[in-house]
Design a protein around this nucleic acid. Structure first.
Lengths: 341, 341
DNA sequence: GGGTGGGGATCGGGGAGCAAG
DNA sequence: ACTTGCTCCCCGATCCCCACC
């Protein structure tokens, strides 16, 4: 028994022989170069079809140093924002006929991140897209010269060259302003983890609204995006009861907070209003339905791909503006009860 | 102004020169061949580290005819199961030092699926992994000869060669049996969409338990995995009120169902018990906390990679068995109220 | 002078054959 | 016998130069 021996794929020479031309001419046809008579072109194309010939990507990449492949590095890949963005970016890339090599990781590990990016570069990707949650992730790649364009999806500007993002700040501001307009004066914040750019944008907006209105901004509690952490912080808040509304940095934590309030006998929104961020599909169907801020990850993925194309010079595309976010008001918010502080 | 001119990456010859050896020896070190004196090996490795040298995948692929790249096709990529499996598969592949080219799509479109797979094959992937939700997705790829091994993640066997999966059937059976043992006799089912293999496995288990116990299995309602659809079905159920428990095919729909019950004034679990499937991170923190069935997507991703390696002959790995699922009992289930049917 | 072919270099490694320390 | 170096070809394309109709 010999090796299974996968049938050797046809080469450019096989095509040339079958079409009765030189490999040179086949190459001209493949790369759409001029100076090929239509009749000849047709003969070659027929031979290509007949042999089901596909040029070897490896050989091509070796000599041209281009691969029609994009590297995607995702941190926080288990979170909704990054994973959803990655998904839509993938689809957008496929539409533009680019392949995507993905390296997903849960956490932001600078060394791992660099290694992944360099591996991608060695794979001859034409550009790298980084979906970053943490500042340190951005710094990790912005610092090094990769040799290919880098497009970053991140909610801070600091030292970022090509960047697309959602307007986290405006979204968070809208949420907090809404609470203020309902009459709330004591508005707490449950923030995301240290180092997260989304978390700090949202916290910054919360703080600014309160400052602008002359309201007291008490030290935010800090969670790690998980419902568990929201639950813990919610328990601590429930003991204090010195507030009438909470702006929680994401829906998952907000769910934990609401659960803690329920356990503590605090009614939402009767005693306390709660508003989250992300608009999970299920947020609308909680009891009470969770008010939140909706983000357009689909558009964001498309923006990232557009920026890649512009950076590659394939098409002229201006740097996309911040994508707006949308406040979604639901049953978890109400005016403060008159008898409370 | 000259071209931006990407800094040329180090080659095997650069390493050889720095280490004061021949490229031949470097190659021997790289490929772990014998007959290299430890001292020499060390010198070479030092040079490699110093130059941060990584062999060119393209050049290597060209000569070895192996790309160390795997193609991943994901359907239902916005759902928790597929996306989570894809994430963990990606990590497992990276650990095995394989690159992954991913094609994610939301829906199962046979033509699109085939096109994606063929694109991957053209990219010289060594194997294709399909994460399929629908039967038609499996059929789409099992039908064609791709020329590379195909590993399918799917919950049905029919005509699947290499397959890894979670034991959906056992998980669903455990859930329904638990309800029966609590004393429930009228147990409804809200199923997933037509064509979904997970949905039919779960519905099949529900039906079998009821049949085995001589209980009536009323026509299941059918949703599409979304909370919205769960809400609709829940409303319909709430009008009938001829049951004491509902087994819902996933947590998202279960959340919708519970919301509908809350709106209709039905208490969970006082009037009706609800149990879901998936164990979303937030399920534990709903009010009431949602009983559900937990799945090990991390292990599943690893299984898929192991099967790929065995199919590639890199390592001898037996076909992985079904991964068990785990019933998680929480506050949304209780014995039936004595005064109800 | 537009179309085509021939020959050869090149990309970055893998590997064979052989000589030499 | 073991280790190492040298030389040269191979993988499959791109691309350049030059000649030929």
């Amino acid at each position: 028994m010999s090796e299974p021996e996968r049938a050797r794929a046809a080469t450019i020479f096989d095509v040339a022989r079958l079409a009765g031309v030189s490999h040179q001419t086949v190459s001209r046809v493949l790369n759409d170069l001029p100076n090929v008579r239509p009749a000849t072109r047709e003969r070659v194309e027929k031979a290509i079809a007949q042999l089901r010939y596909v040029p070897s990507p490896a050989a091509r990449a070796l000599v041209t140093r281009r691969s029609r492949t994009i590297g995607l590095v995702v941190t926080g890949a288990h979170e909704r924002g990054p994973s959803s963005t990655a998904l839509h970016f993938n689809a957008a890339a496929r539409d533009a006929r680019y392949a995507v090599i993905t390296a997903s990781m849960m956490r932001t590990d600078v060394a791992e991140l660099r290694a992944a990016a360099e591996l991608l570069v060695r794979q001859n990707v034409e550009a790298i897209v980084l979906i970053a949650t943490d500042r340190s992730g951005v710094d990790a790649l912005e610092g090094v010269e990769l040799g290919v364009p880098l497009v970053t999806v991140a909610s801070e500007q600091r030292g970022v060259r090509h960047r697309v993002t959602l307007d986290q700040f405006a979204g968070a501001r809208a949420a907090v302003e809404y609470l203020v307009e309902l009459g709330h004066r004591e508005i707490r914040h449950v923030a995301g983890p240290e180092g997260s750019m989304d978390a700090s944008e949202r916290a910054r907006a919360w703080f600014q609204v309160l400052s602008d209105r002359g309201l007291v901004a008490r030290e935010p509690m800090q969670g790690d995006w998980t419902p568990e952490s929201g639950f813990e912080r919610g328990r601590a808040l429930a003991e204090q009861r010195d507030f009438t509304a909470v702006f929680v940095a994401n829906d998952q934590m907000a769910i934990g907070v609401m659960r803690a309030f329920a356990v503590a006998g605090l009614d939402v929104p009767g005693d306390v209003s709660v508003i989250g961020f992300d608009d999970l599909p299920e947020s609308e169907f909680l009891s009470p339905p969770l008010a939140t801020v909706r983000q357009d990850f689909h558009g964001l993925g498309g923006d990232a791909m557009a920026l890649v194309l512009s950076a590659l010079g394939d098409e002229a595309t201006p740097d996309p503006p911040l994508r707006p976010t949308e406040l979604v008001v639901r049953g978890s918010v109400a005016p403060p009860a008159p008898h409370l502080p």
